[in-house]
Design a protein around this nucleic acid. Structure first.
Length: 423
RNA sequence: GGAGAAAUGGCAGAGUGGUCGAAUGCGGCAGUCUUGAAAACUGUUGAGGGUCACACCUCCGGGGGUUCGAAUCCCUCUUUCUCCGCCA
């Protein structure tokens, strides 16, 4: 959520920046400013009425104490009108504040200056690529065929017990998955991220805090009976650990990593591109989250990118990094780098990590603040990234590491797996 | 799931209708003393709105009510604790 003060001060600038998202926000911004003005005027009037009322009440109290009941009753009569007036103003204030809040929720984050203009993923800007794309034999298979051939992932079995998009990992497939999770967590811990285990279901306030609610409600599984949401990413519970917190400036940076399953309804996505592990309703992911001082957040973002690079380098997977264009940028992010691994047998790039800086957008919703050197509360910056998402990394490994004799396990994973090939 | 008790500032913990944004202790910050630190002493220390700055307003788990006036009384929801039941 954008800060009202920023909209008051820099409306033109914000409006122009939002054009990169192909949004014309002028009308919305103007309405917000009008409501803000109305809210403040109402507040001032209400405050004055309450002040008057408070003053009279104190006088009444004193008069009763000194036994002047008659004079007190005269004053009491005067408060009746004040009470009615303040009730009406209070109601107006509430409805105005609600309207304002609703509109503020509709405004996405302001893109960082480096975000390229554009409308679709084709306009994303490739900024880096590394790793050799292997030459596979003619009878190379996509990962869903390999999964069947070596009996390591069973999609049909998952359909039986849950539905499409809920695969069952078997034997060495399950072991490889667990190895990857442990390996990722170890790498993140070594880079200074503290490992956390968090709830996989969250309440509404948490969804609002990180921006999944109110807009993307349909993307999350909702347990109606208890009004809880299954997390779409560990970002939600981990970042919300800091909701309504004022942290000490010297505690920066706060670096957490967490492994969780992720649940996404993915309503409306079907077809060839969602085959196999490409798009699932439940998948595993290891996430990194940082809470940063505003001065340090972009440096931190670069650090996170370098960290993810170092993992992909060790796994020896061919990958590229994209800077998302305005049209492809998530609602809450100011700047996002996507990592994509090349899936050789499918001949396409698969997104395996998304690393973002949200600046104060989430912090404003979360009321996540720190005390600056003057003792004033300031909003912190939040960042997060996948390090890494499991299924597509697994797909990349299966497809890129396949040989006539089976699938080789990347060297760094062998100690975690306890085997060096699947055949 | 049943019965009872409770929810107050970073923490602990007073406060049962007016002078309470709230005693006291701990913690934090600043200072005195000290070569330095500790101890001791002194001061300071919740959040938000509003204002050029004051004033002023709101907040004692959430919501609603009674009253001229609510941390304090009433209703309701949520959470926590104790006991019972069930249970990985």
């Amino acid at each position: 959520m954008l800060q009202l003060q920023a909209i008051r001060d820099r409306k033109e600038e914000i409006s122009n920046a939002l054009k990169k998202r192909n949004i014309d926000a002028d009308t919305l911004l103007d309405t917000i400013l009008q409501l803000d003005e109305k809210r403040r005027t109402t507040q001032t009037q209400l405050d004055a009425t309450l002040a008057e009322s408070n003053k009279l009440s104190k006088e009444i109290g004193m008069l009763f104490k000194s036994g002047k009941a008659q004079e007190a009753n005269v004053l009491k009569a005067k408060t009746v009108a004040l009470k009615e007036a303040s009730k009406a103003m209070g109601d107006l204030l509430n409805t105005t504040a609600e309207e304002l809040q609703t509109l503020l929720y509709q405004l996405p984050n302001v893109p960082h200056e480096s975000v390229p203009a554009g409308s679709t993923d084709e306009d994303n800007e490739e900024i880096f690529s590394e790793g050799e794309i292997p030459t596979l034999t003619n009878n190379a298979l996509p990962h869903w065929e390999l999964a069947k051939k070596y009996d390591i992932i069973d999609f049909e079995l998952g359909v039986k017990i849950a539905g499409a998009g809920f695969p069952v990992y078997k034997g060495k497939g399950a072991r490889l998955q667990r190895a990857l999770i442990t390996y990722f967590l170890d790498k993140n811990a070594a880079a200074g991220y503290t490992e956390m285990q968090v709830p996989h279901l969250v309440n509404e306030a948490s969804g609002l805090g990180t921006g999944q609610l109110p807009d993307k409600e349909g993307q999350m599984y909702h347990v109606g009976e208890d009004d809880l949401y299954l997390i779409p990413t560990a970002e939600v519970p981990v970042t919300n650990l800091f909701r309504d917190e004022i942290i000490n400036e010297k505690d920066f940076p706060i670096c957490y990593t967490s492994y969780t399953p992720c649940f996404r309804r993915e309503a409306g996505s079907y077809g060839a591109h969602v085959r196999g592990l490409n798009r699932l309703h439940q998948f595993d992911k290891v996430e990194i989250v940082r809470i940063e001082h505003p001065n340090a957040s972009y440096q931190a973002l670069d650090g996170m990118v370098e960290h993810v690079k170092s993992i992909l380098r060790e796994l020896k997977l061919p990958y590229r990094i994209l800077r998302l264009c305005g049209g492809d940028l998530g609602f809450t992010a100011a700047l996002t780098y996507d990592f994509e691994v090349f899936s050789t047998a499918q001949n396409r790039w698969l997104e395996i990590s998304s690393v973002s800086n949200f600046e104060t957008y989430q912090a404003n919703r979360l009321k996540l603040r720190y005390k600056d050197e003057h003792g004033k509360s300031q909003l912190a910056h939040t960042l997060n990234g996948s390090s890494l998402a499991l299924p597509r990394v697994l797909a990349g490994i299966l497809e890129n590491y396949q040989t006539e004799d089976g699938i080789q396990i990347p060297e760094v994973l062998v100690p975690y797996c306890g085997f060096d090939s699947i055949n």
